[in-house]
C-alpha cells in the first residue's frame, strides 16, 4: 500500500489491523463474452463476497458484538456500502483514475462508462483524491472503516447510548493514534472525520447505481447483496 502506517500502541487500532480481511479477488465467468455484462456480473459477485467478509469483520470490531442483534443489523444495513466504498477507495490510492474493485480487477473510466458506472467512477475518484491528499495510512483506514459502521445514523437503533459509546471508543482510538504518529498536525483527526460526508454521499450514489442495475434485471445478483440493497430502499 502507498502510505504505510507505523506500529501503534493503541489496542483498538492494532486489533483492527489484525482483523482486517484479506483482499477479495474477482472471478470473471470465462463463458461470458468480455462485455459490460461480464464486468457487472463479476462486480456484483465480488460485492456479495465482500459483504460476507464485511459482516464477519464487523463482529470483530471492538464493542460491536456487545450490541444487541437488532442494533448490529441496523448498523450493517445502513453502513455496509460505506464500508465497501472505503475499502475500494483505499485499495485505489496507488492507481491513477482507476478503481481497484478487487485485488486483481481495476476498472478504468472507459470500462465504467460502458457499464453504466460513470457517475460512480467520478464520485469515487473525488473521494480517492481526498484520501490521497491526506495520505491516509492503513491504521487510519481501519479506524475510519469502523467509524463508518458505528456512525450509521440508522433510525432503527434501539440502544443509542451503546452505539454512542462505540463511536466514542473509536474516536478515542483515532485521536490516540494521531497524537502518537501525527503530532505535527493537531487537526488531522478532524480532517479525516470531515471526509465522512463525502464517503456517505459516494456510498449513496453506489446504492442508487446498483438499485438501478437490479431494476434492469440483466445481471444475476446474489441473495445477500439483494437483501442488503433492499434494506437501503
Amino acid at each position: 500500500h502507498v502510505f504505510s502506517g507505523k506500529k501503534t500502541t493503541n489496542k483498538v487500532v492494532s486489533h483492527l489491523i489484525l482483523v482486517e480481511p484479506g483482499e477479495v479477488f474477482a472471478t470473471p465467468d470465462p463463458s461470458l463474452p468480455d462485455s459490460d455484462l461480464r464486468t457487472l456480473t463479476t462486480l456484483c459477485e465480488l460485492i456479495n463476497r465482500e459483504l460476507l467478509m464485511t459482516i464477519g469483520w464487523a463482529k470483530h470490531v471492538p464493542g460491536f458484538s456487545a450490541l444487541s442483534l437488532v442494533d448490529q443489523m441496523a448498523l450493517l444495513q445502513s453502513a455496509w456500502m460505506e464500508v465497501l466504498v472505503l475499502g475500494m477507495a483505499y485499495r485505489s490510492l496507488a492507481l491513477s483514475d482507476e478503481l481497484a474493485v478487487g485485488g486483481n480487477l481495476a476498472l478504468c473510466r472507459e470500462q465504467c462508462r460502458r457499464s453504466g458506472l460513470l457517475h460512480l467512477h467520478a464520485a469515487l475518484l473525488q473521494l480517492i483524491g481526498k484520501f490521497r491528499k491526506a495520505k491516509l495510512d492503513r491504521e487510519e483506514f481501519v479506524v475510519m472503516k469502523a467509524m463508518a459502521l458505528a456512525n450509521s445514523d440508522s433510525t432503527h437503533i434501539e440502544n443509542t447510548e451503546a452505539v454512542l459509546s462505540l463511536q466514542d471508543r473509536l474516536h478515542e482510538a483515532l485521536q490516540d493514534y494521531e497524537s502518537e504518529h501525527h503530532a505535527e498536525d493537531p487537526h488531522r483527526s478532524g480532517k479525516l472525520l470531515m471526509t465522512l460526508p463525502l464517503l456517505r454521499q459516494t456510498a449513496n450514489e453506489a446504492v442508487r447505481t446498483f438499485c438501478q442495475i437490479r431494476l434492469e434485471g440483466r445481471i444475476p445478483m446474489h441473495k445477500l447483496f439483494l437483501e442488503m440493497l433492499e434494506a437501503k430502499i
Binding site: 442483534l69 443489523m73 446474489h222 445477500l224
Partner: peptide
C-alpha cells in the same frame, strides 16, 4: 428479521450456506 434473514443468520450463527 424475516425480510433480513440472511444478515440475521450470519450475525447469529455465521453459517453462510445459501448466499
Amino acid at each position: 428479521t424475516e425480510r433480513h434473514k440472511i444478515l440475521h443468520r450470519l450475525l447469529q450463527e455465521g453459517s453462510p450456506s445459501d448466499i
